[in-house]
Every structure is written in C-alpha cells, then in structure tokens.
Measured scan of single mutants.
Amino acid sequence: QVALSRTQVCGILREELFQGDAFHQSDTHIFIIMGASGDLAKKKIYPTIWWLFRDGLLPENTFIVGYARSRLTVADIRKQSEPFFKATPEEKLKLEDFFARNSYVAGQYDDAASYQRLNSHMNALHLGSQANRLFYLALPPTVYEAVTKNIHESCMSQIGWNRIIVEKPFGRDLQSSDRLSNHISSLFREDQIYRIDHYLGKEMVQNLMVLRFANRIFGPIWNRDNIACVILTFKEPFGTEGRGGYFDEFGIIRDVMQNHLLQMLCLVAMEKPASTNSDDVRDEKVKVLKCISEVQANNVVLGQYVGNPDGEGEATKGYLDDPTVPRGSTTATFAAVVLYVENERWDGVPFILRCGKALNERKAEVRLQFHDVAGDIFHQQCKRNELVIRVQPNEAVYTKMMTKKPGMFFNPEESELDLTYGNRYKNVKLPDAYERLILDVFCGSQMHFVRSDELREAWRIFTPLLHQIELEKPKPIPYIYGSRGPTEADELMKRVGFQYEGTYKWVNPHKL
C-alpha cells in the first residue's frame, strides 16, 4: 500500500502544474464570482478556492472578487462561507491571508454602469489591468444573457486571457439551449467557454479513460460480442427537503440524466481518441451522441416518491408533501431510460440510465454486464461477469466473477477481482471535483468540460421526450421513500436483457 498525506498529494500536483506551459504561476489572475451571495458560491466555490489557495495550487498573485446585487462586505462573505471551509486552528494565518486577497463589488446584473465599476475595481488591483480574468457564473440561467453581454462589453482583460465558467442547466430543451449557446458564442470563442459538469471532475469518471485505453485486457472485450448491457446509475437517499420548488422546474431527467449520466455513457462508449488533447476527446464523445436516436417512450419509466409510513423524519414525507412543490405536480423524481448506440461496436446493446431521489442508498456507478459463458459445464450455477466502476461513495473498480467454492467439488461461487483505489492508495485525500475543474480552467484544459456541439446532441436525444411529458403530463409511478424505485423499472431492465441475480454482496474494501 502507498500512504500519501494531503501535503504529498498537493506537492505532486504542484510539480505537475508548474512543469506545464499552460499554468502561468507568476502571472496575476483575477477570479470573479458572479452571484457571490448565492448558495453555490457559499457552499462550493469559495470553499474550493480556499482549498486550492491553502494547498498552494493557485497562481501566487490571485485575487478573488465577488459580485452580486446584495450590498455585502468581505466580512459578510466570510461569515456565510467559512463554515464550509473546514479550516483547522493551525490554518488561521493562512485564512487571514486568503481573505486579504478577497474583495466585493455590489451591482445589478443588467446595468452597464455596475460592470464599469467592477472593471475599475479590477484595474485598481495590483497589475489588475493586465491580469488573466476568470469569470464564474454562479447564477440562474435567466440572467446569463445580460451578464455575459455586460462582461464582454465592460470587463474583459485587454492583455491577459479571459475565460468564463457556465453552470448547468444549459437551457431547458434543445431550442433554449441553442439560443443560449448562440448568444454566448457570439461574445466569446469556444476556447474561452467552460460549461461545467462537476461529474466530469470526479476521480473515477476520469479513471474510465485510463482503464479503457491503457489496459490491453479490456480492449478486445469492450464491444457487443461480449457486453450484454451497460447500466449507469445515480441514486440519492434523500428527497427534495424543502427545495422542491427549484427541482420541480427541471425534474430528474434535466437535473441528472441528460448531463451526468449521458457524459458517463460517452466515456464508456467512445472510441479511442487520437490523443488526450481536449478536442480529440470531445470529438469522440460527440460521435457517440450522434449514434444515439431520440428516446422512445416505451423505453422510459418515470416515478415519484411517496412517504414511507414506517419511516422516520423526512422519510415519512412524499414529494408532494414538500411545501415548495406545486400542488398535484407530476414532475418525476425517478427515471429509467434505455438508449442504444447504433454503431458497429455497440449495435443492440442497451445502455440503461437510472437516477432518482429518496432511494435506498447513495450511489453513482457504471456497471457493464457481460454475456453468459458459452457451453456451460457447471449446471447453470454460473452468474454473469460484471465490471463495476463505483464513482461514489467509496470509489472502487471491481470485476464480479466466478471462482471455485472451497471444498471437494467443482462448485462455482461469485467473488470479485478488486482493482480499488483504496487498497493501493491508503487514506489518500484526493482533490474534489470542483478543485480539479477550476484548476483545469486556470490551465486552459477543456477536456472535462462540455463543448457546444456535445451539448446540442445531448438535448436532441431528450427534448422530444421532455416535450411529450410536458404536454401529456403522465402521472409518475409512486414508489416508497427509501425503496429501490418503481418495480416497473426493474421490469424494463429485465425486458431489454439485464439479469439481476441478487445473490452477490459487494464487500467494501475500504472497511476491511
């Protein structure tokens, strides 16, 4: 086992960053958080920038500027975001240094004079007029057009580079997404736009490419001749908990499936790229999406959770019991969808996408189930092999396979070949997804960000279904809070070829 401390991990990262040409360590950078008073800024962006600063992973002359409508001070920003920093008493001095680099400007999102004030403020910072500028839009999409237009007109660096990070949702359907994309691309070049999907920053999602293309053993079996089906799962054990009003506007397909799960599907299904260059990788992902037809209604199961009468606390409440959810809402909190990649490698292999709230566990994984062994000599005792990439929690890679049961006879039983990170790298604290992705933006690497043509294809696949749901308002199937979801989803999976045995229990190697 390799035991690495946080300091050692960050030392390795620093070495990698400083050796590259793309990370300008000594240049002045300004990180501007648009929507600095909001939840995302408070819980994710400010803490992430602090962790990067604490670990010495930001360029040395980096300033952080918050911008929002609320009249706040840096002290206010500190008060609301610091509880999420997880700072230790030993880091007190470092924390003071961090907040000394912070400033805040209040202004409207659609007022040109406010942006001119913001620009004057940035120019007044040390070497601010020639600094590289990175704008993070932690804002609702309704203000994107006004904000990007004003940034472009008043706040661009004339000497350094300018980059803009856009948070999902990128529209509600193909038409609104196209409108937003066309607007942003009329102001910024594609190499300046970073559409963030934080799932692409997760260690195991990034590991998929290495697993596939750096190991000879997987190449020959990664196709329709050997793989019976692919299941991509995202499960949350909690409901909307008072935030249903926002969720109800989008629903589970827009929230998770059309982005996170579809991105994971691309990494499983794509061909080997010409290189690890950002556009070479994204070219292959677009090719996969172009091979997927629009979702067919007979390959869809929609569910909505109801309270568990035997549960406790939140578990007793259904989705419609959330006071922020519109009365009688038919918005799905669970969806199972089957897609097919219609190309030579994957023809006929079902890709089953499942996601839901208020389920029995927290889990995100990719599961490849292989065909049955031909010419069975073990009297149907063999179960199908599976390769599982567990994204969260407890990152893991393992192969479910058959071995001989101890004893006199040739009785096979299920076991696993474990390729888990935790076994080799004991207690290594890896940077989280937002840390990686923000560092990628500083480096100018777009590999783990969504390109406009990729986004367009993703919406093309799901828009007809979303429009049909909005028009017909089908009643989702009720499922109990804390269950596996509607049984109809299991029946759909069985119908397209997935075999669920229920006889195997994964042993978490992190707890051995």
Rank of each mutant, 00 (worst) to 15 (best):
R354T: 04
P474Y: 10
D453L: 07
Q392W: 01
L289Q: 05
L368T: 03
G422K: 09
L471N: 14
K285D: 02
E472Y: 14
S445L: 15
G407A: 09
A396Q: 00
T324Y: 09
P323N: 15
G348D: 08
L471Q: 14
F410C: 11
Q392K: 03
R451W: 07
K363T: 07
L359I: 06
E413T: 13
L262I: 07
Q381E: 15
A396C: 13
M408T: 05
H371Q: 12
Q380H: 12
H379R: 11
D280I: 13
I352M: 07
E413C: 11
K494L: 12
E488G: 10
S278N: 15
L430W: 09
G375H: 12
Q499A: 15
Y340T: 13
R424F: 05
G485P: 00
V295E: 06
A297Q: 10
A335N: 03
I377D: 09
R362P: 09
E395I: 06
V281F: 00
E344Q: 12
S445K: 13
L492H: 06
A489K: 05
L430E: 06
S415K: 00
K287N: 11
G444Y: 01
L320W: 08
A335I: 05
D440H: 07
S278K: 06
Q304W: 01
N308D: 15
V268Y: 05
L437K: 01
M402T: 13
R436C: 05
T503R: 11
C443Q: 08
Q263H: 06
T316R: 10
Q369V: 08
W506D: 04
I389F: 06
G303L: 02
A332T: 05
V349H: 01
C443F: 10
P478W: 08
V325R: 02
K473S: 12
E472N: 12
D347C: 08
M257K: 04
D372E: 14
V388N: 07
L353C: 07
G328C: 15
E416M: 02
R436S: 11
L339S: 07
A335W: 04
E416R: 00
K426N: 14
E271G: 07
C382D: 10
F498Q: 08
L368D: 02
L353H: 03
M401P: 03
K272L: 07
F410D: 09
V268G: 06
R282C: 01
V366C: 13
Y340C: 09
Q468M: 10
L339N: 03
S275P: 03
L492N: 00
I389P: 02
R424H: 03
M401C: 12
D279V: 12
Y504V: 05
R282Q: 00
K285H: 00
D440S: 06
V300C: 15
N385S: 04
R362T: 11
D453G: 00
N394S: 09
R345Y: 09
T276A: 15
D347N: 14
N259C: 03
K404R: 00
T331D: 00
A269G: 13
N411K: 09
E470G: 11
L430P: 15
V388I: 12
V281G: 08
K494M: 15
G313V: 09
E395D: 15
P412S: 12
R354D: 04
G482Y: 07
N299T: 12
L437G: 00
E365R: 02
P326K: 06
F410S: 11
D440I: 06
F370D: 03
S275G: 07
E454F: 07
M408D: 05
E454Q: 05
M257W: 00
L439M: 12
S415F: 04
A336D: 07
F334L: 07
D490G: 09
P464H: 10
R484T: 01
L466M: 10
L302E: 04
P273Q: 01
K400T: 04
Y398C: 00
P478T: 10
V337K: 02
T420M: 07
E365D: 09
K272Q: 10
D372G: 11
K494W: 12
R345S: 13
K357A: 01
N277D: 15
V288L: 11
G318F: 00
F449Q: 03
R367N: 02
V306C: 14
V441C: 07
E488S: 10
D322Q: 06
I377M: 11
W459T: 03
Y319M: 00
Q468E: 14
G318L: 00
V325L: 07
F449M: 06
T324P: 07
V281Y: 05
Q392G: 14
R451G: 04
V281D: 05
L439P: 00
R451C: 01
Y479M: 00
E386T: 04
P273K: 02
G422I: 11
A458E: 13
G502I: 07
P474H: 15
L387F: 09
H448Y: 08
D376K: 10
V301E: 09
V288T: 11
K357I: 05
G497P: 00
M270D: 01
E344A: 11
N298H: 15
D490V: 08
V366R: 03
R384Q: 08
L359H: 07
C355S: 08
E435S: 11
S483N: 09
D280W: 08
N423K: 12
L492C: 07
F410Q: 09
W506Q: 04
L267M: 13
R424Q: 05
E435A: 09
K272M: 10
R282F: 01
S415P: 02
T276Q: 12
N360L: 04
Q468D: 12
I480D: 14
I477S: 14
M402D: 05
P476F: 01
V441R: 03
I389W: 01
K317F: 13
P431H: 11
T330E: 13
F351M: 06
E413H: 11
Q380D: 15
A332L: 02
